[in-house]
Each structure stands twice: as structure tokens, then as C-alpha cells.
Simulated scan of single mutants.
Amino acid sequence: MKLKGQCAIVTGAATGIGFAAAKRLAEEGASVVIADIKGHEAAATDLTAKGLDVVAVTADVSRDDSVSGLVKSTMERCGRIDIVVNNAAMASQLKPGPFEQKTAEDWLRVYDVNVVGIFRMCRAVSPHMRAAGSGRIINLSSGTAFKGTPGLMQYVASKGAIISMTRALASEFAPDNILVNAVAPGFTLSENAAAKPELRPYSEMAIATRLIKRDAYPIDLANVIYFLASPDAGFITGQVIAVDGGSVFH
């Protein structure tokens, strides 16, 4: 219960890595806001039934007013914001294809959620964390940023941008003891991915590149996210941890 008394926001928390992170933080005593555009109420009901302190809030990180509303409702509920996990992203909706077939609109939509969405969240929580003189921000990047995976250039570029943003944010927030780090997952077998047999070849290809020869699961990421949010990571900032079984070395 190292996070007892703390309040966390996890975006994109209805399913997958976000849900696993919300559950892990709540199990360690945090009050957790499960923020998403759909499925968040069912996720919160599931965790509340397990005796965890969570609440669902509708939030779209591509909208300033929605992010402001999320932060306002969290402050009204908790009176503080200690942890933010920026997990919301456009990923499963994207269709791979040659970059020449993509439009500027494709890029802008992905960046608005994956990159500018993190900026919106950090800007919104900044006054509250700075006033408290502490905070933890964990951003979700991707192993694709290291590998340059073909077919999804706009997505790969957005995840690379998150790494640069994490380092810049760590520098800007350091005077107020706000620590900013990133986690870079490899292909993760979430419940949604497991339900799609057509994705199994991607999982097999990912395992072939790993030193640890198994699938990655959301709990693998959630454990690292919890560590970065915990007191044990109090001297770590501006870092990117690849959680992919040794597929890439960083």
C-alpha cells in the first residue's frame, strides 16, 4: 500500500495496459480515476466490486475542455493529483500501409491524440503538481519508436515524439520535484489482441525478437508503471524503460 492517500489519473484506462495500470495503482492504495471515451464505467464497476477505490470519468484527450473537466473533477474528488499515466492513444484503429498512402489528416489525428493529448494532460495538471511540490507522470511510448516499424509511420513518429517530450518535461518539471518517465511496450497481448486471431502472427514475430521467449501481458507494463509511480523510483526522471522482454536494448 505504498500509494495510500495518493490520487492517480490513468487515461485510456478502460481496457488493456491502461486498465491493468489502474488496477495495479489502486491495489497499492491509490484513488484512481479511470478516464476514457468508452468502456470506462464498466471498468470502474469491475474494480469497485473488488473493493478498489476507483471512479470513471469520460475524457477525450484530443479536446481541451474534456481534459480540463477531467482534472477539475479529479481535484473536486481527491483534492490532489499525485500520479498521471498518459496511456490514451490511437493504435488499434490504424491500418498499416505505405507512408505514401497516408494523408496529412491521418498524421494530424494521430498526433492530436498521441502527442498533443499528453501535452494537454501535463499542462492541465501542472499547476496542481507544482503547488504540491511533487508528482509523477508516466507516458506510454512504444518499442516501435526504436525499431522504426514499417507501415505505420505516423504512429511510430508519434511514439518517438513522446520520448523527446518526456525528456523535455522532466527538465521543466524538475525544480518542483515532479518526475517524468516513459514506458515503451513491445507487442502486448491484451484481451483485445488475444481476441483477434489475425494478430497472432505479430505476437509470434515479437516473441522471436525477444530474449525472454513469451508473450507480453498488460500486467508486465502495469508493474513497471507502478514502480515509476512509487517512492522506490524517487531518483529516476527523464528515462524510457523498454518493457519488451529484451527485444530492444535502451
Rank of each mutant, 00 (worst) to 15 (best):
A44W: 10
R24M: 05
A88W: 05
C7P: 00
N114Q: 12
G151V: 12
P197I: 08
L152H: 01
D215K: 05
Y155S: 07
T188V: 08
C122I: 09
L70Q: 03
L211Y: 07
A233W: 06
S190I: 04
T166N: 03
P150G: 14
V54A: 10
D232F: 12
S203L: 13
N86K: 06
L228F: 10
G12Y: 04
I225R: 06
T58Q: 13
F119R: 07
L189P: 00
E204Q: 11
P197L: 06
G143T: 09
S68N: 14
A233F: 07
A20K: 04
R77M: 15
S141A: 15
R130K: 15
P127M: 09
V116S: 08
L179F: 09
V224T: 15
Y111I: 08
F249V: 12
N181A: 05
M205W: 02
A157M: 13
Y217P: 00
I118H: 11
V71I: 11
S126N: 11
T74N: 03
G29D: 07
D244K: 04
M205T: 09
I118V: 15
A145Y: 10
Y226S: 02
S31F: 15
S66C: 08
N87D: 14
Y202H: 06
A208D: 12
G133W: 06
I34M: 12
C7W: 04
I178D: 03
S190P: 02
A30S: 14
K50C: 10
A132C: 07
A229I: 01
D53F: 03
T144R: 02
R63F: 00
T11P: 04
R210S: 14
I37E: 00
I163R: 04
A8E: 04
A13Y: 07
P197F: 07
G135N: 05
S126C: 14
L152T: 15
A157D: 05
H128W: 11
I83W: 03
R167Q: 13
N86D: 09
V110N: 05
S62H: 03
S247D: 12
K2G: 00
V84L: 15
L211T: 12
Q93V: 08
I236N: 00
V54P: 12
G18V: 07
S62N: 07
G39R: 10
I138H: 06
V156L: 11
I178V: 15
K102S: 15
A132Q: 14
C78R: 04
A157L: 10
S66N: 07
K159D: 06
G69K: 05
P150T: 14
D64R: 12
D232V: 02
G16H: 02
A104W: 11
